[in-house]
Design a protein around this nucleic acid. Structure first.
Lengths: 216, 216
DNA sequence: TAGATTGTTAATCGATTAACAATC
DNA sequence: TAGATTGTTAATCGATTAACAATC
């Protein structure tokens, strides 16, 4: 029964495959070889074949991969054949921006509610859904079987909100707060630490400058 | 002269060290051993020492690491001892949210301008800075020596905007558009693909469910 | 069938962890 | 000095790449 665990390195590449295959599909491309895909995506053909084979044989010798089939299969692996309900906790700039971002819907992520502890924001509609007070958070998650909570609140608040969400039955947290959350195994956490990302960019700017001044 | 290249795996961990050290510093902690830090951060002490030693010896045998010193050093490595000017291209929900996000300033990232091709948005102030029309983008980058462009525009527009930014002298692109940008070496690109992140989360939800239904 | 291309095993590479001598 | 803890080398682990037999 014990399926071999797929490494997060592989998982991390799946969305990119999914994107390229979606584009190929839209262009009407029917089949593609690992070689052609590797040139398009700038990765090795070997890696592509290894990655896909983690999930079973999607291709055919002498033919390659059927674009549409492979696209659908990767979608299923990513769970995109199902819908996922989500709420946003924190109706500040970022929370509202994510609430208004329509593209998540297209992938089956359904925006169900948004919460804030600031009374001035409560009632304000975000994409037609009024901001709810924080007091209603746990009951709302329970009543509506919410799967994903998006945390766009300051880090001080994030830890305690996570602690409330877990017993309410949340299954996953998409964490934009700049703090590491400690949740039980079984609750998935995906961090988006924007300032970390910006720091990496900053490092690479500095490094490049240094390299090019040294080489003089 | 050839410095040994630091792997991106190491770079990717630096912001997290920086965050923990900043918190320790704020708490008034003066020194910490790799062992103690490893327990706090849930990584191995060995990795911590290896990571730091990529940049030279920051510690002292028998003592550990001076928190404040190490914090400053990592800040320097990340280029946070210098300021970086940035502009935002795309004044939609996400662009405005990032413009209003104050915390970047604290790390030396200075918000210099915001652009949009929608005439209805032009002139609208975002954190006191009026949205400029796209036509002014290149000249503005040149005139103000802008280092970083934040792309919060649809993917179709992102590729052509990047092609304009490069000759205008942009040094780095923080790319929120869901597309891979092809820029010359020397222009740093850091991608924030939110939907990819959400797909990973979705995968982990599905995987966990499967594992726990199989084990029944 | 012959050619093309996968699936998969083996080889390589790089990153992580362990171990310990150096040294504060 | 003795104890603690780094810096660094060696061992292990995992991920990537190469190679090729299987097969469409």
């Amino acid at each position: 029964m014990e399926e071999k665990e797929i490494s997060q390195a592989v998982i991390g590449r799946l969305p990119r495959y999914f994107r390229y295959l979606g584009e190929l599909k839209d262009e009407g491309v029917e089949r593609i070889s690992s070689q052609d895909l590797s040139e398009l995506m700038h990765v090795t053909a070997s890696q592509i074949r290894q990655d896909f084979n983690n999930f079973g044989g999607f291709g055919q010798q002498g033919y390659g991969y059927n674009v549409s089939f492979l696209y659908d299969e990767i979608g299923k692996i990513l769970g995109l054949d199902q819908t996922h309900s989500f709420i946003i906790v924190g109706a500040g700039n970022l929370g509202q921006a994510l609430g208004n971002y329509m593209n998540f819907e297209r992938r089956g992520f359904l925006f169900k509610g948004i919460f804030d502890q600031n009374p001035a924001l409560v009632g304000k509609p975000v994409r037609g859904i009024p901001v709810r007070p924080m007091e209603e958070l746990e009951q709302f998650v329970k009543d509506n079987g919410i799967e994903i909570a998006v945390l766009t609140i300051p880090k001080a608040a994030a830890v305690s909100v996570a602690e409330k969400l877990v017993p309410a039955g949340i299954q996953a947290i998409w964490n934009f707060a700049h703090v590491d959350l400690n949740v039980p195994a079984g609750v998935q956490v995906e961090n988006v630490h924007l300032s970390d990302s910006l720091m990496k960019l900053s490092y690479n700017i500095s490094r490049y400058r240094q390299e090019n001044s040294e080489d003089k």
